[in-house]
Design a protein around this nucleic acid. Sequence first.
DNA 1: ACGGTAGACTTACGGCGTAAGAATGGCAAG
DNA 2: CTTGCCATTCTTACGCCGTAAGTCTACCGT
Lengths: 223, 223
Amino acid sequence: MGKRTRGERAGLTRTQVLDAALALADRDGIGALTMRRLGAELDVEAMTLYHYVPSKDALLDGLVERVFTQALPSPDPAAGPTDWRTLLRSYAVSLRAALLRHPGVLPLAASRPAVTPATLDTVERGLSALTTAGFPLGTAVHALNTLSLLVLGHTAAEAARPAAPEGSAGSPAWLTRLDADRYPLLTDAARTGAGVDDAERFAFAVDALLNGFAAALPGADSS
Amino acid sequence: MGKRTRGERAGLTRTQVLDAALALADRDGIGALTMRRLGAELDVEAMTLYHYVPSKDALLDGLVERVFTQALPSPDPAAGPTDWRTLLRSYAVSLRAALLRHPGVLPLAASRPAVTPATLDTVERGLSALTTAGFPLGTAVHALNTLSLLVLGHTAAEAARPAAPEGSAGSPAWLTRLDADRYPLLTDAARTGAGVDDAERFAFAVDALLNGFAAALPGADSS
DNA sequence: ACGGTAGACTTACGGCGTAAGAATGGCAAG
DNA sequence: CTTGCCATTCTTACGCCGTAAGTCTACCGT
């Protein structure tokens, strides 16, 4: 629809291109994100997109930047000095939510630095909370880094699982037919359905890590 | 070298194909792993590979399976019941080492279930150590999962960083020119070089997680 | 001796990212 | 109004990709 006649201008912007790319990737998968298809989505030839984006790789970089940015929207300046556990947990939760909202960009985020200026505010805030609580600065950096990577890894695994309909082994099926004598605990876990809920697993993982951070505090207290 | 004359047989095997693919990906990057190039590497036409592998995607699956398999070689049957912390730490360390040895397959591993029969032994052994130590089975499953995902995320970030020679921001440079007033802690961390060593960061992350697991033990003891 | 068959080869198709250059149309200067 | 500039868009084309489909060849059990 809306095919423009020859000579009419589209008047795109880099933002519109990125938005359309993100929508396309979310709708049809990252594999369907093609310069030609994206151009069609915007009623424009593929080559036109190169006026807003130097290459497809840069476009993908823009996508992960976009997702990270909207994952960490505002530090909520009205709030006072928050407890570091609360802060880090909410950071993890909202980052996971944003990544799951755009599962297509997740594999991209795993292979890119993804340190955009927009995320610096959040990092600084996290460092502030941690150092205020008594963590040495180096430890605080480590902690934030570790938490981010755990969130990334966990979310990637979540997003990858449902997309395996006919691969080498069906996700719900491969657990049921394994040797009960050789793998008693595994079969038991499979039978009782231990650890299948993603959100619960995520909460466990984050809490475990935060507890580990608390143990690294010079003072033994964990408040 | 070794170009076969017409009609001569190559006598390949699936294993040889996977080995060559892994070597090619390690040497020239995952982007250079092409059916044609892989065929050339084996003195064979591209289509011939399809007799050993149903599709390129299956070939990639085979690659991650291969890496995981050689990452967890033998449970060392002579060893007695190992301390769970020691066991999990050595699991994390060897998994990281194997993944770093083949950085090309890492982005693939992040988007694939990667639960191959070869890894089941390791998982079962980990569950055994954890439940013996007093962890409920569900918690043990969670813990192993979390640890694996942390290793994956951490290693992916490690492998991705040096491969950013000209992206949106140079890795060593972007830290030096940020606003010192707006981001005091960040600049301080950058100046003192806090948390730059990958191995140290990894050790911190794993130890923190293990400490967190210990805190989840029903008994308060952490041995 | 010979037919079956598994493995290897050939050809071809549609799609990809993008290099190179030609067209179009709005706009400022004369 | 005319003229020329220039950002934006379109067209064409190249080399590469994964792989469907069909053909050929050499070996092996009989």
